[in-house]
Nucleic acid binder design. Structure first.
Lengths: 392, 392
DNA sequence: AAACTTTGTTTATTGACTAGACAAACTAAG
DNA sequence: CTTAGTTTGTCTAGTCAATAAACAAAGTTT
């Protein structure tokens, strides 16, 4: 049963609406806010007064007159606080400090040689400490820390399993909150990537979007009805383990014919190895293969075509299942866009239901391996703006 | 941008909350409503007064005292209005008249010999007219007509394509609204079935549920985050056209290896024909095959095992993708539960991700081919209760 | 310079909820 | 059987947040 309504809640909700209007349309006048929201201009005036007092917005110079008195323009104060966002990957850690609009103010990337928990934690905290030190002085300071992880995260933010890190049942959230005394959000990297694409990836709002994170495995973030869909336990999006070939290649998950056995970076590398394009000591095999393809190596091109076709099969399923407005491919395999795209698009065009393709946009991520940190930043920022604790 | 809040909307929303509380916990006292909702007891008293005036609730006899004055118990007036719900299928039309709680008050089922639009419309309107005549006198009368259709329905309720009926681009909603001057809802039969299962199918509330309608083809209704998920254009849920065998059996949708080519009633019948268990003139082949299996025919049992396995492959994908709380199998193939279940459950247990199975419940529909009409009834009832137009 | 327009502030009003008082109707204890 | 206490429901006064309208400030247009 949802909450009942009273004057106090109304005021809080209306104030949030005014703030969101200022964020989305900054700079904007009180009069325009009243027009935009339908609230009475004296209501807007008093709510804006409070937001000014909270230092979450500011008045800028006068705007242009539309025939009468010049308006006073209001701005969102993106430097009122800062957010720390981390993408914890198998081989490295990417950390960014962003303002309250997601602008990256500082960043650090460190390699990790081992997935040993204690070692990784040490490096992780070093990155976070560096970012905390880099944060400018601001009214609210660091409003939260978000950490994207390649694994299964429960609704409570506990890492249940991160197979590529070799981690099981780790309460990273509690550990970090106890250390830093800040709100901490832990999320699956594909879910975070989907959210990052949704908030920062496009010019227009997208209500239904599928983000395919194609790296070592395949994880999918689902933005459905304008929300990140997580399922009953927070475990949704395991499309990497969707069967595309019954009785096919066995997978470590126990199933057979899983999409990620055919269409991931790992699948590509395995086939390249068997085609003797690379050997076990090849460093950064994906780039080696991209370079070979760029140089006209037909075997490498054929391998990318095959992978592109398999990516297309799984995305065709996504299109038929979700009827999305947008599909975004991200993570490592997006680097091979040039060689994957033709076969992938051909598979989709030929096989996805015609109706579903009418307004669909399939693209590779424009956020260049930053999707996940953008998503984690958005999570902590939005949590802060929704709750807006009292100014210290 | 969502609406702003004011006094008028507060009262309306709180009144709706009070009404929903009465519906869900009937009979209930004012004092208990206040306790349940957190609203002040005088607020509840005045809102209840209005609902009594609208004849949507009633006072019943006194309740039991808990130590002081006896309470006056309030009841939802399920006979305040009635809803008409139709399941328009390829071979027949099922129509029901329900009260505002979904209780079936009257029903009619007619066979249709042709899918010719004009003929079907004639029969459809006959059924609706019969149900309208059967409706008791009530304050609000017929509050709406809901029609479930096997096809692609746009967000505006237009039938874009119903391949099994041979229909294209039919604005059934406008046609029916013009004729009956009542609100009309048109929805895909699998979506309606999912909603019917959600509202009427279980003892406890279910936020994430997958309804697999396995008939001539396979349609899937998705209840995600407590809502029916429809996608950008209203076309989601085409899991019948999810590839489970790359380069597999060609499908009329243009893809290959679609789930419904392997796991539908049509797939079963095709295999039974090839196994010479039935011929082209066999009437009601599904029941013939069930009877053969019941009599110990091993070929028939083997066919059901095969179909059960294929159903399990697709449901395994659903489990991995959506992480649902419940999966319900409905429509024609649910009649073969006994022979499908063992192989289906085995496939799921062996192949779905272990985490996802922890709290999952997979079951066959208990609504016995009524899922779709129950869903359509729920749509029109809820639309009415949300809007509650003035009493005539 | 005067009239009009637009933006923003101030004041009075309105309506819905809440707090508390009161009434009605019960149960329990003496 | 009477009195005290409890619970439910109604009534009244108060509070708060939004709105309507008046007013002020600052511009543009005639």
């Amino acid at each position: 049963m949802h909450q009942t309504w009273n004057q106090h809640i109304i005021k809080k909700e209306n104030k949030t609406i005014v703030l969101e209007t200022i964020i989305n349309r900054t700079p904007i006048s009180r009069a325009a806010i009243a027009q935009q929201t339908g609230l009475n201009k004296s209501t807007v005036s008093s709510l804006v007064q409070e937001l000014l007092g909270e230092k979450i917005i500011e008045e800028s110079g006068p705007g242009e007159s539309s025939g009468g008195r010049r308006p006073v323009m209001l701005l969102f104060n993106q430097s009122a606080g800062f957010s720390i966002a981390i993408d914890l990957r198998v081989h490295d850690i990417l950390g960014v400090l962003t303002d309250l609009e997601g602008n990256i103010v500082h960043e650090q990337r460190v390699l990790i040689e081992t997935t040993n928990f204690n070692q990784v934690m040490k490096r992780l905290m070093e990155v976070i400490d560096t970012l905390i030190k880099a944060a400018p002085t601001s009214p609210y300071g660091i409003v939260g820390i978000g950490i994207g992880v390649p694994g299964v995260i429960s609704n409570e933010g506990e890492i249940l399993l991160a197979p590529n890190l070799g981690w099981k049942r780790i309460d990273l959230k509690a550990h970090m909150e106890q250390h830093y005394h800040l709100p901490v959000v832990i999320e699956n990297e594909a879910n975070a990537g989907a959210y990052g694409e949704k908030v920062f990836g496009f010019e227009e709002a997208v209500d239904h979007m599928i983000y395919a994170s194609i790296g070592a495995g395949i994880g999918v973030g689902l933005i459905l009805d304008n929300k990140l869909y997580k399922g009953m336990q927070g475990f949704s999006g395991e499309l990497g383990h969707m069967t595309i070939e019954k009785d096919g290649i066995p997978c470590r998950c126990g199933n057979k014919g899983c999409w990620e056995r055919y269409a991931s970076e790992q699948a590509l590398i395995k086939q390249a190895y068997e085609a003797k394009l690379i050997d076990q000591n090849t460093n950064d095999p994906l780039h080696v293969l991209i370079d070979l393809a760029n140089s006209g190596d037909e075997t490498a091109i054929a391998l990318f075509n095959t992978i592109g076709t398999y990516i297309g099969i799984g995305l065709t399923n996504c299109i038929n299942i979700f009827n999305p407005r947008m599909i975004v491919i991200g993570n490592q395999m997006a680097k091979a866009e040039k060689w994957i795209r033709p076969a992938m698009e051909h598979m989709i065009e030929e096989h996805a239901i015609g109706f579903h393709q009418e307004q669909l946009n399939v693209q590779f991520s424009s956020l260049n391996m930053y999707s996940t940190v953008y998503g984690m930043s958005a999570f902590t920022m939005e949590q802060f703006l929704q709750e807006r604790p009292l100014l210290e």
